[in-house]
Nucleic acid binder design. Structure first.
Lengths: 286, 286
DNA sequence: CGGAAGATTGATAACTCTCAAAAATAGTGG
DNA sequence: CCACTATTTTTGAGAGTTATCAATCTTCCG
């Protein structure tokens, strides 16, 4: 009855219901910091640019605003692949900015089934607002070794107060996030297997392009295994693998060594029924 | 290849891609008003209470706040079943408050497939923020004859400014909305057919109970046909019908004449894996 | 080199869809 | 109140998709 999408043992390191996350005795951040000491800011130029790049799609950013954004991402931490970033016990007075790498939101079912709810890419901010009574309604985990910056909420609030345009930009970004979630529901609910996968790839490329994570040839890193891919589009690992092979055989995409190359973009877009309108890419000055 | 979930002719009245919505020459509201003249406020006591009831789950509401909420819902309109409430052409300076009845958000695919993204029940507010460049990323339609109130955004903003608690309550409400969307993605992506339906029913009952739309015996109105139900849980009409019969045969629920009665709540909850935590029902004073 | 994780394959079962038609229900006008 | 139509629900049969189980092949990494 239950689909055994995952190997019995927690092979990918993300928390399973079978072994609940330990209660963090110390706060999340100090925990991370202990393992990965903060680095000098100059290491993360590239990462900080992602946030600017994303927000500048929504509003024109002046030098002051750009500078303010850079100030936000000073407290840098490295997190390792599969590390759970948000779970019970996290302090709620910080938000996290993903500077580099990739992470995901996900939910688990008692039987071990996992649904990925979204990918976090550089420039994305995630917080713990969805936690009430110490019970988050979903978790966030790094998909590969990543860099995150922690921003005290009061700090972010002050910045937003000072620069109304940033407030607008953050609001737009939140709207896009929820639009993506709706698109995912449509994807999993109504599209068939090939389309789901194709659509996901189109969307990821579009989002990554904005933050300069796509090469000239259109290829990009996708640091996830096929189990995670399967849990994203609501299919089994085995079936996902076969769908993947069909897309490869059709010479639409190439996925090797955690890197995707889109071989025939027009045909892939057509197959997926992809309309990047839902990413609101064209929005300027709301 | 394409699932023909819907009859070829637009039987349920919701816009299809085949016949795009006409461009509203007048604004949406004046359009509605013309057909259904606004009523005297005293008719809608029950409806307004829904919003209060919902928000009071999040913060304690004083008399002044309750009163402010009631002032919001003065401009009442009746809308008919299947009427599209949000589409291109809508004015973006109002939000809508559903006073009575039921509505849904949905997305369409070029092939005619439709995915319901969420149900709006009394006390729910929906706006057009997701519209940019005159292209909404999804639509909203009434599921049955309903009553809505339109609130100028400036008015809502003023109220929120004046009563910070209401701001908190609205924020919480928005968090719950997105939590529900995540839960739906989990539902459609990972649960099997019976569980999906069971989960939907549990969730609707929980939400409707808050706004006093559930009878003593636990039954509630569900003014939708099985096609809509199918488009909600990502299954075919035929299959949904069969699943429904299974739940009936198992004496878990009874669905007749657009009314659901839960016959065995504990067993239904168990089957669904329903955890009302995601509705954040217990939240008080964030 | 050896093990572990990840990807792939094959065979079979289960689930879900499609097509087509019949039964039941709701709505309407006489 | 009944006849009549349109909508909605239900049924049946068969095809197609997706899941499950189990094994093999690859790749990664110490």
């Amino acid at each position: 009855m239950l689909r055994q999408t995952h190997p019995p043992a927690s092979s990918i390191g993300i928390e399973r219901n079978e072994d609940p996350p330990r209660v963090a005795s110390a706060s999340f951040m100090s925990e991370v910091s202990a393992r990965f000491p903060a680095q000098a800011p100059e290491d993360v130029d590239h990462g900080e640019r992602a946030l600017e790049a994303k927000l500048s799609r929504f509003v024109r950013l002046g030098a002051a605003e750009t500078d303010a954004l850079r100030q936000l991402g000073r407290a840098v931490h490295n997190v390792s692949a599969n590390q759970v970033l948000i779970h019970e016990g996290i302090r709620i007075d910080h938000v996290c900015l993903l500077l580099d790498g990739m992470a995901c939101r996900y939910k688990m079912l008692p039987g071990g089934e996992r649904q990925i709810l979204g990918y976090l890419i550089p420039g994305d901010i995630f917080d713990a607002h969805f936690i009430v009574f110490n019970r988050p309604d979903h978790s966030v985990a790094a998909l590969c070794n990543s860099k995150i910056a922690t921003i005290p909420i009061v700090r972010l609030a002050a910045t937003i107060r000072k620069y109304p345009r940033l407030a607008t930009a953050f609001a737009c970004s939140a709207l896009v996030d929820s639009a993506i979630l709706r698109e995912w529901l449509l994807n999993v609910g109504q599209r068939h297997a090939e389309q789901r996968l194709a659509h996901l790839i189109c969307e990821l490329q579009a989002r990554l392009k904005i933050v300069h994570r796509v090469s000239k040839d259109g290829s990009f890193d996708l640091p996830i295994d096929q189990v995670t891919l399967a849990d994203t589009i609501g299919l089994t690992l085995v079936h996902t693998n076969r769908i993947l092979q069909r897309l490869r055989k059709a010479e639409l995409i190439c996925l090797r060594q955690r890197r995707v190359t889109i071989l025939d973009y027009p045909r892939l877009v057509f197959l997926a029924g992809f309309d990047e309108n839902h990413l609101h890419l064209l929005l300027q000055e709301i």
